[in-house]
Amino acid sequence: MSALITPTDLQDEIANNPKLVVLDVQYTLSGEGPGLYAAGHVPGAPFVDLDTVLAGPAGEGGRHPLPDVETLQDGLRAAGVQTDSVVVVYDQQPSLGAARAWWVLRWAGIEEVLVLDGGLAAWRAAGGPVSTEPVEPEPGDVVLDPDELVALDADDAAATAKLGVLVDARSPERFRGEDEPIDPVAGHIPGAVNVPMAELVTDDGRLRPAKELRARFGQLDIDEVTVVGTYCGSGISAAHTALALHEAGVEADLYVGSWSDWITDPSRPVATGE
């Protein structure tokens, strides 16, 4: 079942589904999420900060490790999430922050989580209303039950690279180790294959159609029974790749710590080149 929702369908759901909660997860690496939210969001959607709600503090475990469950639960309750909520997440585009939210919320046991395909840009393009008013929802009562999805650690990621397919979602230059703008060590996990996140989206920030995604992953001999993991720099783009794989019919595990965790242990091998 697709995890995507179109702007038109979201407008219908907002009008007709009292269990619906829409969360704004606009995010940039340089911390512009709150400013983007203030400049415009779906009416009634509270802001959920990726750095403080959907991730733990940077350090051991990488730049965006999993949050502790209490912090996540408090953040989602503050955003109005109830035990039986149907949650829709979105960001500006191309759904990197939203995909992280999609993955983390499902990991935490929330069953129905959808991503607004194309994000706020698609919402605006479809004529959806945009608000700049702050939102203070009625606090929710969600009780999280984590570990519903597999969060790979470094050993699991290495095993997946060896025995299954480990997809690196970063740019080709970072994968090859030619250019590393963020992390102190350049390269990739030995055995990983590179599918840059940018390949999986259209020019307007939507995920490519499922048929195209299946064909792209099929080039790597990935099908629904393959053991697949994804990683990137810190588990955000890789969540987007997991979403793309889900749309292609493949359930992938996420190495949340990703490259920023892998390189914290200098004994771990580093590959460069193709």
Partner: peptide, 26 residues
Amino acid sequence: GGLDALHGRLSVEQLNPAHPRQDLVE
């Protein structure tokens, strides 16, 4: 589900890469 399912799936790959009955492995 969970971590044990991952290791179960990985075990199939690690333990049977050249098994003569790949139909059974599949």
